[in-house]
Simulated scan of single mutants.
Amino acid sequence: MKITAIEPIVVSIPYRHDGPLTGFGGTVWSKLNYLLVKVSTDDGLIGWGEAFGYNAIPATVAALDKIVSPLAIGRDANDIVQLMEDLKRPLHIFGRNGPVIYALSGLDIALWDLAGKRAGMPVCQLLGAGSRRSVTAYTSLMRLHEADIIATACERALERGFQRVKLHEVTIPAVAAARQALGDDVELMLDVNCAWPADEALRMAHRLEPYALKWLEEPVWPPEDVAGLARLQREANIPLAAGENVGNAWAFQPLAESGALDYFQPSITKVGGITEFRAVAELARRHGRAVAPHSPYFGPGLLATLQMAAVYSHIGGIEIFGVQLEAGLFGDVGLPGPDGEVDIPQSPGLGCDPDPEIVARYRV
């Protein structure tokens, strides 16, 4: 079946969370912006993908419209792995990370959605797995800064049924407030978004050891400092996680070979979609490492990540963004229940299409 159209659709949805307005990438987010990728084929089917995202959306839309789509439209949608390889080779001169790869990620996810729909089964079963019907979620809080606000947010996370909480803070008092609010039995993770040069990261890691973190995420700046991460792994008694800023499976190789990471964190909307995510997951398995996907999404990127959780048993949990949208693209599908578990959709493809009324209401 041939690809007949590729359409980027931007939705901007108001949200609330347990703190004042905040954000990432140097801006404050009053709404959450998502880039959906709608792919049509000549058999009348539609597949949905998601491309990263947030502040990068204008660049990703341009890459999808002007660079990726002209090469992909008219191509056979059935052999996804070969098609993605054929697209990556001529496009590598524009970067193996960033908007072009984000655009390819959205296309790839949509093509797997189409493949599952055409076969009449969820993607996980199409890939030969799928016995796992749910996965434990952890709530991933936005950066809140103030100790009292962090404590309140952690208490509310417990009330919502979460037994795993991730912070995006960079100070010891913030982590201390969270641990005190959560108690000793709740898993606590810390993502500092590449905050420190390696020497400072090591000093901070030692100071964080008393708080029993499940992992310290992206501690080192720049994120490409594999030697710095490996040194941290050797000298600090704290598990390390990273990978959301790694643009493809080959770029994970040095991290795997160095032994720097306990948790690989590919982001399905950034790394090349389901096809490339699978390669990263297999690499992690060969090196005896867990996978903790980066997935602060509420669109097809989240559903695709859930399908991967059904395929790969070394995915121990799923990241759920710690916000509440004014309206969800899939209703309750993909959201955790009161026990902190997320059901993995079992309908064909990714398991659910975006609600057209919600898309129309919030479309930019």
Rank of each mutant, 00 (worst) to 15 (best):
M1S: 10
I3W: 07
I6H: 05
E7T: 00
E7Y: 00
I9P: 13
S12T: 11
P14L: 11
H17V: 03
P20T: 11
T22H: 13
T22G: 11
T27L: 13
S30A: 15
L32S: 07
L35K: 01
L36A: 11
V37W: 15
G44R: 04
G44N: 03
L45D: 10
I46C: 11
G47F: 06
G47H: 01
A51H: 12
P58E: 10
T60P: 10
A62D: 15
A62K: 14
A63Y: 10
S69V: 06
G74T: 02
G74N: 00
R75T: 07
D76Y: 03
V81T: 15
L83K: 10
M84P: 05
L87P: 03
L91Y: 02
F94E: 09
R96P: 02
P99Y: 09
I101W: 13
Y102E: 00
S105V: 06
L107G: 09
L111N: 01
D113L: 00
K117M: 00
A119S: 02
Q125N: 02
V135P: 03
A137M: 01
T139Q: 00
S140T: 12
M142L: 15
L144D: 01
D148R: 15
A153L: 05
E159C: 02
Q163D: 14
R164P: 00
R164W: 11
R164I: 04
V165Q: 08
L167Y: 08
L167P: 07
V170D: 13
T171I: 03
A174E: 15
R179G: 14
L182E: 02
D184C: 07
E187M: 10
L188T: 01
M189S: 01
N193S: 12
W196G: 08
E200W: 09
A201M: 03
A201S: 00
M204R: 15
L208Q: 02
E209C: 04
L216F: 11
L216T: 13
E218I: 01
P222F: 06
A227H: 10
G228M: 05
R234D: 07
A236M: 04
A236R: 06
N237T: 00
N237C: 12
P239L: 07
L240S: 06
L240C: 02
A241D: 02
A241R: 05
G243P: 12
N245R: 12
V246A: 07
N248L: 12
N248S: 14
A249T: 09
A249N: 14
F252K: 08
G259H: 05
L261D: 09
F264R: 01
Q265S: 09
Q265K: 13
S267L: 14
T275G: 08
F277D: 10
R278E: 11
V280P: 04
V280G: 03
A281V: 04
E282T: 13
L283G: 09
R285A: 15
H294Q: 14
Y297E: 06
P300Y: 09
T305F: 08
L306M: 03
A309K: 01
A310C: 07
V311P: 03
Y312H: 10
Y312N: 00
G316V: 05
E319I: 09
G322S: 13
G322K: 03
G322P: 10
V323W: 04
L329T: 05
L329I: 07
L329N: 04
F330C: 09
G337Q: 12
D343A: 15
G349R: 08
G351P: 03
G351C: 08
P354S: 02
R361A: 04
